[in-house]
C-alpha cells in the first residue's frame, strides 16, 4: 500500500510540475471552450444549446493530451523495470497511474468547467451537473486512456495513435455525460444518463487496470 501511495504521489507531482502536464490539459480544455464562440458566433441561445456536448468533447480531447506522459517516460528511463521488480502487482501500478492521470487532468477539468460554464451561457441550474458528470466520467476516461497508453508505450511519438485508439472507445462517456448535462439544463430527469455514466466509469475502472497491466507486462522482454 505504501508503494502504491508513493507511486501515485510521485506521478501526481510529476504531472503538476512538468511542462506537459496538468496545466497544459487545463489550458487546452479552456482553449476549446473559448474557440467555440469564435467559430459558432456569440449568440447565447446557440451557445447554450451546444454547451453540454461541447464541454464533454473538450473533456475527451483534454484528457487525451496527458496520456503520452503516463507510461512512456517510465518505459524510456527504466522506471517500469523497477516497478516490475516491486511486490506491487502490475494491476495496482496501473491503478496508481490512472489515479495520477485523473488527478492531473479529469479532476482539474471538473473544477475548471464550472468557471468556464458562463462563457458558453450554460444555464446555472446545469453547472452542478456539469461538474459532477465530469468528475465521474473522467475517471473512466483516465482508465481507458491509461490502458491505451500502456499499449502504445513502445510506439515512438504515439500521440495520434493514442487518439485513434481511445476516442472510439470513449463514445459512451460522451453520450451519457452530455445527456446528463443537457437534461439538467432542460430541467428533465438526469438520473438515467448519470447512472449509465457511473456504470461505464466503474466498468472502465475494472477493465482498464487489467488491460493496462497486461500491456505493461508485454514489454517485459
Amino acid at each position: 500500500m505504501m508503494t502504491f501511495r508513493a507511486l501515485l504521489w510521485h506521478d501526481v507531482l510529476l504531472g503538476l510540475r512538468s511542462s506537459g502536464g496538468a496545466a497544459l490539459s487545463a489550458a487546452f480544455f479552456a482553449l476549446i471552450v473559448i474557440l467555440t464562440p469564435l467559430g459558432l458566433g456569440p449568440e447565447s441561445a446557440a451557445l447554450r444549446s451546444v454547451a453540454p456536448g461541447l464541454f464533454w468533447i473538450a473533456a475527451l480531447l483534454a484528457t487525451l493530451l496527458g496520456l503520452e506522459r503516463v507510461i512512456q517516460p517510465d518505459v524510456e528511463d527504466g522506471t517500469l523495470d523497477l516497478l516490475r521488480l516491486s511486490p506491487l502487482p502490475m494491476e495496482l501500478v496501473a491503478l496508481a497511474k490512472i489515479g495520477a492521470h485523473w488527478i492531473t487532468s479529469g479532476l482539474i477539468i471538473s473544477l475548471l468547467a464550472p468557471i468556464l460554464a458562463p462563457m458558453l451561457s450554460l444555464s446555472t441550474s446545469a453547472i452542478p451537473m456539469l461538474a459532477l458528470s465530469l468528475l465521474i466520467g473522467t475517471i473512466g476516461l483516465s482508465a481507458i486512456g491509461t490502458a491505451a497508453a500502456a499499449l502504445g508505450a513502445s510506439v515512438q511519438r504515439g500521440g495520434i495513435v493514442l487518439a485513434i485508439l481511445v476516442l472510439p472507445l470513449n463514445i459512451p462517456f460522451l453520450i451519457f455525460g452530455a445527456s446528463a448535462v443537457a437534461g439538467a439544463q432542460a430541467g428533465t430527469a438526469t438520473g438515467q444518463p448519470l447512472m449509465f455514466l457511473t456504470a461505464c466509469s466503474l466498468l472502465a475502472l475494472v477493465v482498464g487496470p487489467i488491460a493496462a497491466a497486461a500491456a505493461l507486462r508485454l514489454n517485459e522482454d
Binding site: I144, L151, G152, S154, L165, V207, A211, N219, D221
Partner: peptide, 13 residues
C-alpha cells in the same frame, strides 16, 4: 510485440 498489444486492444474493443 505488436501482436501482443493488438490482442489486448481487440479484446478491450
Amino acid at each position: 510485440r505488436a501482436a501482443r498489444a493488438a490482442r489486448i486492444l481487440a479484446l478491450v474493443g
